[in-house]
Design a protein around this nucleic acid. Sequence first.
DNA 1: GTGGTCTAGACCACA
DNA 2: GTGGTCTAGACCACG
Lengths: 130, 130, 130, 130
Amino acid sequence: MFKIDQRSSTPIYQQLVQEIKEAILKGILQPGDKLPSVRELSVQLTINPNTIQKSYQELERQKVIETLRGKGTFVSLNYKPSVDKEKLTVLKENLRNILVEAHYLGMKHGEILQLVTRLLEELNIKEGQN
Amino acid sequence: MFKIDQRSSTPIYQQLVQEIKEAILKGILQPGDKLPSVRELSVQLTINPNTIQKSYQELERQKVIETLRGKGTFVSLNYKPSVDKEKLTVLKENLRNILVEAHYLGMKHGEILQLVTRLLEELNIKEGQN
Amino acid sequence: MFKIDQRSSTPIYQQLVQEIKEAILKGILQPGDKLPSVRELSVQLTINPNTIQKSYQELERQKVIETLRGKGTFVSLNYKPSVDKEKLTVLKENLRNILVEAHYLGMKHGEILQLVTRLLEELNIKEGQN
Amino acid sequence: MFKIDQRSSTPIYQQLVQEIKEAILKGILQPGDKLPSVRELSVQLTINPNTIQKSYQELERQKVIETLRGKGTFVSLNYKPSVDKEKLTVLKENLRNILVEAHYLGMKHGEILQLVTRLLEELNIKEGQN
DNA sequence: GTGGTCTAGACCACA
DNA sequence: GTGGTCTAGACCACG
């Protein structure tokens, strides 16, 4: 269900956070859907339960998912993007760094823009509405 | 000359790598230019010389700069982007993650594209030639 | 396990890189095997952990080993020699220099070839398959 | 006359030592031939005179060249390889390392041997006599 | 003067 | 427990 690369330099728990957010974005996980339990996922992905736990906590902190005691974890019904200025500046900084990197890997202006639009499409981030 | 955020979670040596790459991109540092010596920068930025070292070595590994023994470190005269497939896939993955993040921070399709183009401009990555 | 000569003029971290590569070549270390932890080796060889670190990072850069966060460092499962033209020319240059040196130390044509074949055998670099 | 790569990681003075030894081996420089003066070479190669000096001193120490006061430096008339056991073991160690490296760069047993014989030929190290 | 290596000791994130 | 980063301070080879 979720792809985790143990060798990647980005922490496993963050990879999982990303994967889940992406699944929601693509509609694979719908608001209200139940997420697999920590133990379940732990077995499926052969990853330490503590790590799964950490991902879920992070997602809950971001209000992307909610935990109902004794019932499980669910995709939040009404996620509202919080206007977090700090996060935004970090994001821009990261984006900036990636663009620099892209250039040093030989990508041209057009190629970069093309890649961005392709990814936006893949991620179901649409033009008008969204 | 270079802005380092000691509090940031991204390692100092990586920040410096980024800053130098950016400076070259913007033309502030030209091919052939001498970089400040390790000790010099160390004093300017109040950062340990070893940390500066690490940045310089990383940049040299990437062929962005080169060192002439006993003379100092210089911006490479003819940097050629190496077509590193692996790095490219990592880059795409990172970009993808950032776009997901941008969405969750409430940015719309148009805003994202606008931000990208603005950054490309800032970074002197131009349309036709580059 | 690994022989390090503290007095040698070649950096300790490079010696260790060599030793590990050789151990893999000889089959003493198999793909997938766990390498001793940085701290462990540090104690065994009475060498500073940072120096061991540097060796491991160098080997990881060369894709000879890989690290799994929190789990340790392992011999890569499928090492593929990268066709690095630059490294090849450097290698040839070094080999050339060594051959010149051998001559000046009085070794004859036959002796040199004999030494090379003996070393290849020792290193488990075989004729047909390899 | 001699090729020096300022960017190479091997010290300039060592490169020069190598180049001169090679020239002698190939017969470009004959026993008794006069070497260019330190100043001359310094200008030709745009290298610090001290560095040239160091090369000459090293070659003299190895009895490859001789200095006649007031007359200049000359290729030794009767070079006899000294049987330096230490140097021999260092040489073997270096050769061993290079062979390991060759393998990790993807060279096969046959290719390595072929390269060695080709280099020996280039260096005028012949089969019977030498 | 330059960069390269090493040590000792510390702190941190991750699993 | 693992590796990753950083500092402080030292020594060295090179030009």
